[in-house]
Design a protein around this nucleic acid. Sequence first.
DNA 1: TAGATTGTTAATCGATTAACAATC
DNA 2: TAGATTGTTAATCGATTAACAATC
Lengths: 210, 210
Amino acid sequence: MNNKDIKNIPENVISRLPKYYRYLQSIIAHKEKITSSELSKYVGVSSSLLRHDLHYFGRFGNKGTGYDVKLLYNEICNTLKLNKTYNAVIIGAGSLGSAICRYYSTRNYSIEIKKIFDINPKIIGVKINNIEIQDIDFLQEYLDENPIDIGIICIPEKVSYNICSILTQSGVKALWNFSSSDVNSSDNCVIKNENLIDSLLTLTYRINNE
Amino acid sequence: MNNKDIKNIPENVISRLPKYYRYLQSIIAHKEKITSSELSKYVGVSSSLLRHDLHYFGRFGNKGTGYDVKLLYNEICNTLKLNKTYNAVIIGAGSLGSAICRYYSTRNYSIEIKKIFDINPKIIGVKINNIEIQDIDFLQEYLDENPIDIGIICIPEKVSYNICSILTQSGVKALWNFSSSDVNSSDNCVIKNENLIDSLLTLTYRINNE
DNA sequence: TAGATTGTTAATCGATTAACAATC
DNA sequence: TAGATTGTTAATCGATTAACAATC
C-alpha cells in the first residue's frame, strides 16, 4: 500500500476509524492483544469489515494471535493524523460555542481552542477555561497573524455565510459547522455540517416506525 | 405504496428527508412550485435520487411542472411524523445540556423540553428558558408520572449507562446520546449516538488527505 | 504440530444513477 | 400540441460479507 492510494479511501471507512481508536484507547492500559472479532463486537461491525477496513492502510495484525493493542492504536493514530496539534477558533460564544469550548479545552484530543469570537460587547474579554472571548471585528486581523486549522461555527445561520467566507479565504483548512444551514463544500476547505435539527428529525421518524 | 412497506425504507433515504424538509420550509412563503432538479441542487443530491427517495412514500409531483412546495412540505412533515409534539427531558445541565435546552426551547421543532435533570445541588431549581433543573434523584419518580418520548443525554460517559437504563425501562422511546461512549441499540428504544469526538477525528484525517 | 486468526479476493447485497415512457 | 418533468424500472456502481489460503 502506498501513499498515492490514500485519497481513494471511502468515507465510510474513515468514519469507523475513530470508533476503533476510542475503544483501543479505553483498553490500552490493561489489555495487550485483541482479535478482530473482539474489537469489531464492541464497535458494532462485523470482524470481516474491520479487517477489510484496516487492510486499506496496511498489515498490523498477527495471524493466529490478533492485534497488539498499542501497535494498532498507534497505527490508527498515525492514519488519522492525530500526532500533531490543530489550532481552532470558535465563532460564537453563545451556549453552544461555550459548551464546545469547555468540552475540548478540558480534553486532550489534538485540537487546541485558541480564541472564541463573538459580536456581543458585554462578553468580550471574558474567559472560558482561560480562552478569551474576542470581538468578531478582529477576526480577520487575528487570522492574518495566526495560522488556524479549524473554524467551529456556532452562530445563527443568517450571519454564518459571511464568517465562513472570511475563514476559508484566510486559509482555514476545515469548517465544523453547527449553524442550522449547511455550508457548501469548497475546493480548499474541508466542511463538516453537524446539523442537530436534521438529526432530531430522523429520530421522530424512527420512534414511529421501528 | 402501503404502510406495510414502511419499515423497509433505507436509513439513507430517511436521513435526507430533513434536508428536503428544511429547504422547503425556507422557501414556502415565497415560492409555489419547485422541480426535483432545483430542490436536489440545494440539498446536494442528484435529481434522480430525490425522485427515487420520494417514490418510497408516494407520488407528490406533477409531470411537466414539478412539485407544489406546500404540498410536498406537508407530505414530508407527515412522513417524518412532525405533526405531533414529542416530550423530552435533558439529562445533565452542564454547558452542553444547557445549550441544547436553549436551542430547542426557542425553536418550534415539534419537540418540547419538559425538564432538565442534574446532580449538582447548587443549580437545582434554576430555570433555563423557563425549564426547571431538577434533582436527578427524582428522575425515576418523574418518569413514572409523566410520559416522555425522548431522553437527551448530556452527562459524562461514566454515569450515562445507569441513566440510560432508567430511561429505557421507563418507556422512553428514543435516546439522543451526546455522551462520549456509544449506547448500544435495544429492542424497545431508538438510539442515536451523536459522538462529537468521532466527528472531529474524521476532520483531522480529511484536512491532511483532501 | 494443531489451532487460531489474519490478509485478501470473490460473491453478494444495497444504494445511486441513468434512461425513458407516461403525462401534465 | 410541444415542451417539460415526474415516476419507475433497469443498469451501474460501491460497500459489506463470505470464504479460505497463508501463517503465526
